[in-house]
Structure formats: C-alpha cells, structure tokens
Design a protein around this nucleic acid. Structure first.
Lengths: 320, 320
DNA sequence: CTGAAAGCGCTTACAG
DNA sequence: CTGAAAGCGCTTACAG
C-alpha cells in the first residue's frame, strides 16, 4: 500500500500536508489540495486507519459480540446499529461467541486489544468477570452481569404479563406455558389479577429434542388444554411441529401464542408478543455515542414487548 | 489502557521483554516471564493490536462485506467463517452494504484502510470498479465483477436444471417459474431434454408488492398450473401468501418447489433446492488463507445445489 | 537471556 | 498556508 510519504513525494509536498488534505481540518491552498488528491488517486492511496487510530488514540471502532448468527434478532440489531454508527463515522466490529463463556471472554479481550471504544455484549450465565480498565465502555444487552455497566433489555416480565392477560381475556383458562422460566412472575401476576388459576409450566433445559417432542405429544394428547404459550423460537418450533404431527390445528383445536416475531411466525400468521427491536437499537446507539463522546455515565433501560394480534388465538367461552 | 512500558516499569524489565513475553517467540527466563505476566495482570494489560499490526504490517483482519443481514444465508456464512478464521488466529470484520453500490464502495475502502488482509464481498450489478493495489486480496462471492479475482458461487444453472428436472419427473408440465432470470437456461435445458415445452416465467423486478400479489393471484385463479417453482426467499414468501389468500393448498391443489432452504420452508415442509453452504464456506476460508499466507493465485469454484425432497410437490400423471 | 534503538504510518503542536 | 519534529505502542534486527 502506498503511504502518505509516497503521495507527498509525488505531489511535491510534505507528508504533513498530505495528512491535512485528507483530514480536511486545516485549510490548504486549493492548488496544493488538488495536487495532493491527484497524486493520491494515482497511487490508490488510502490513509491507514491503524496508524491514524494509534496516533489519535481513537479507533472509531465499536465492538458487538453476538451469541449466535442463527438468531435473526441479533442480526437485525447488528445491521441497524451498523447503519446508525456508520452515519456518525464509527465502524462496527462484529464477533460471535457461540454462547461459550470462554470464547466470549476471548472475543471481549480481542475487541479491547483492537481498541474498540465501546463494546456491546450479551452476558451469559457463566460469563467470566470483566477485567479491563475503565477507558473502555462496556454495554450489556439482554443480561446484567455487572451493575456498574450500562444495561439494555426487553422487559420480560411485562411481555409475559401482557401475553397471559391476553389469553385470559380471550377466555382461556387451561394454558400451558413452554419455557420462560425467568418470566414466571409475569404469567402468575396476570392470572392472579384475573382471578384465574396459574397456568401449567413446561421446562426443557437439558432435555434432548426427542424428549421434548414426546413430552409435548403427551400434553397434546391429553386434550385438556385450550391454549399454548411458547416462549421463544426454539419452543415455538418444537410445539408447532408436535401439533402438526398430531394433526392439531390452530386456532380451531388449540390457540397458540408465541414470544418473538420471526419470519415463520409471520408466514404462519401466528399471534405473538413482539419486541420493539428498533427502539432498543436506537437507544443502544445513543448510549454508545453518549458514553464514547460525552464521557457520560452508564445507564439502564428496559423496553416493553407488545402484542401483535394475528389468527392463532381464538376466543373461547370462559369455563370454570 | 496500560502500555507495555507501564508493565515493563512495574516488572523491572524493558518493554522489549514485555513484548517478548506476550509474543512467546523468544525464550525468556521463566522467572522473568512470570514477573512480566504478573505485572501485566495487575494492570489489566493487553497488547495493542493497532500498534502491533502497524509494526508487523499484518492486521490479522479479514473483511466480509455482506449485502444485508435479513438474509439468513449471509449470516450463516459470516458465523461459520468467523469460527474457522478464529481457529487460525484471524479476526473477521463484518460490514453491510445494503445492496447500495456507493455504500459498498465505501465499506471496501474502509476495510482496505483498516488493513484487512483479504476482503470478501458480493459484487452488485452496478458495483464500482475496484481500485486498490495488489497487496489486498479480494474475493468475490455470488457474483463476478473482475475476472482476475477469486470467485466462489453456487452453480445456479445446475440448481435450476435439477429442480426443473425433478418437477418434470414428477409429471408436471404446466409450470410457472417465479424469478430466476439468470438461470433461465437451466430451466430450458431440463425441459428440452425431457421433450417438454418451456415453462412460463414471471419476473418481478421493479414491481411493487401489490402488483406482484395481484399478478400472482391472477395466475393462480387461471387454474391452469400444476406446479410453481419460486426462486428465492422473496418470491417464495409472496407466492406462499398468495396461495394462502386464495385457499390453494399444496401439494393437493398445486405443487410447490423453492430455491433456498430457510427456517420457514423447513417449518412448512416445503421441498427445496438447497445450497451447500458449509462446503462453500470451507472453501472460502481455504481460499482466504491460501491467498493471505501462501501468496497463491486467485481461483474460482462453483458449488452444486441439491434437492431436498419434502412434501410440497406431488406426483401427477403426465398429460400432453 | 535481555536491552537500546530504529521504525511501522500517521497526527499534531510548534514554528515560520 | 506549509514543514520539521516528536511520538502513538508496538516489533525486531543488532548487540552484548
């Protein structure tokens, strides 16, 4: 790669002048400027970010460590965030940790070593404690590991509450909740407010796909339920498959509500509790810029999920 | 951030020694090594990649410019590639161009400025010509803009041919192909080999969603077709929706074959022509490493799509 | 086995 | 308006 010195030589100026032409902060004689730019074009010169970041002590890089590219959620976030940061002159560096605490730690380390000015990550249950000095701004997404750090999340309690309330209002009383261990209180509060019995819960951690499938079949064959509330893509897909295998149709045979709005839930016209992703990303970007540019303090914010009513939940007459 | 000099001072050695301890290439006295590492831990020291990359003149960064995070395809690629490169000590830098030639150009420029050692991108129809010096290795994915550069792609001709051949073998003769302008020859060749008439084609570029929906409704209401072959997610989703709106079921009323295997096609048990993504990514990674480490020559490779038979295509009796 | 010195390609006071 | 010089934090011959 050509350097500023090469350009300087060709244009007959000092490399200082080349730098100034590209930075655009100091006014050069138009003539000089043109000479520099012509020489630069001729040599395909681009200023070296590594060198300039090193000298300026700002990389302009924001790091994002995502668990998994399989989750469309995370990717929507990456893309929207990238677009917003791009407009402000920052670059986004994305890495994946595969839900592996050790790899996550390595990736955070790597981002820090790359002089990312802010690093966004999703704390795992067993995330290793962060040990970096305070010049790097960490932002936690969807999990709170360290209370001194910024933290953005969806309000799971509220989502669970909203979804359960909707099912109850539609007359359902025999409801099975799949997953969502961390949102139990939301389900329970909605029930107790409505004077209804708590729903049944099904938890799957540690189970194989086969076990889950057979458990779900058993539930469905009991035939006692009127509604299913699946928390997240994984449970949703499994229960949908189980229903299909058992020729159970929604909403006729069983009502079906899901947490997360994905392409397939849209295709299948499934009623969901969706997350205000765009709103969260906008706030995330704001938080990044604030921390990086204003030396502001870390802050926390929660975003409320909302119901998208489609056709998978039907009204039933309330029975005791 | 602490620097190697801070560590050196605390450990009572020169910063040269600190560098050597972290690089691990030269043997230090174990005692010295330990002293350095302890001091480093105490200061949360991490070597600055910017500085080391600048000095070594290798960044260890591979760039990937993706069109769009909406396409699960691209993301699967990013994730698998990242995992492979990580194992070899490289980092992946991802950027999005939103199918915008101007932004793509800026992103390529940015990657080059970041001293990416290889840059993978997806040429667009109106991609601006690359003008970089030859120290950067560009790799083209899913499109060939410059024949001197490496190029990896799926064999669209073969995929179209395979899919059409399958439909013909299943007895279909009145087939509508949605999209896939660039694969026409594959469809046509399969037909002529089977002695069948060419299929009908429907192209949508430049049309609005509403126009497409109404066109598809019209096709379906004609009632003359026995099979639909949708090229890609976008057409697939539209035609699926149109069928649903018209209460047309597959495979009973109409057979349905699609290019691309996505989550929703799996959920709906749709027969597809899938792409060997993993195989392509493995080769891509190999190509990157070869170019970067061996100074090898650019090369091109094509990967053959394959049929995944599910339940959306049924056998019909061949009629003339 | 360890250190002093030069230099990677920039930016930025400091002069003029 | 432009240039010479110092320095960002490393690595790597070159000595010893």
């Amino acid at each position: 790669m050509a350097t500023s010195k090469d350009v300087a030589k060709l244009a007959g100026v000092s490399h200082t002048t080349v730098s100034r032409a590209f930075r655009g902060d100091v006014k050069l004689r138009p003539e000089t400027y043109d000479r520099v730019m012509q020489a630069a074009a001729q040599l395909h010169y681009t200023p070296n970010f590594l060198a300039s970041s090193l000298k300026k002590r700002q990389s302009g890089v924001i790091g994002l460590v995502i668990c998994d590219a399989g989750n469309p959620f995370f990717l929507g976030i990456a893309q929207r965030l990238e677009a917003m940061l791009d407009r402000r002159g920052y670059r986004l560096m994305v890495a994946f940790d595969g839900y592996n605490p050790e790899k996550q730690h390595r990736m955070l380390q790597m981002m820090a070593a790359s002089q990312a000015q802010a690093i966004i990550y999703m704390p795992l249950a067993e995330s290793l404690p962060l040990q970096f000095d305070s010049s790097i701004h960490f932002i936690q997404l969807f999990g709170k590991q360290d209370s001194r750090l910024s933290y953005l999340d969806f309000d799971d309690y509220y989502g669970a509450y909203t979804g359960m309330k909707y099912l109850l209002e539609m007359g359902h009383r025999r409801i099975l909740v799949l997953g969502g261990e961390n949102r139990r209180q939301g389900f329970l509060d909605a029930c107790s407010e409505a004077g209804a019995e708590p729903p049944q819960f099904y938890s799957s951690p540690g189970l194989t796909e086969e076990q889950v499938a057979s458990d779900l079949n058993a539930y469905l064959n009991q035939g006692e339920l009127t509604a299913l509330f699946a928390v997240g893509d994984w449970h949703g897909r499994h229960i949908y498959r189980a229903m299909k295998n058992n020729c159970i149709h929604f909403p006729e045979d069983l009502s079906f509500l899901m947490f997360d709005d994905l392409q397939w839930t849209q295709m299948l016209d499934i009623t969901v509790i969706a997350h205000p992703v765009d709103e969260l990303v906008d706030a995330l970007c704001g938080e990044v810029l604030r921390l990086v540019e204003d030396e502001g303090e870390p802050s926390s914010r929660m975003f409320k999920p909302y119901l998208i009513e489609r056709s998978s939940v039907r009204r039933v007459s309330t029975e005791k």
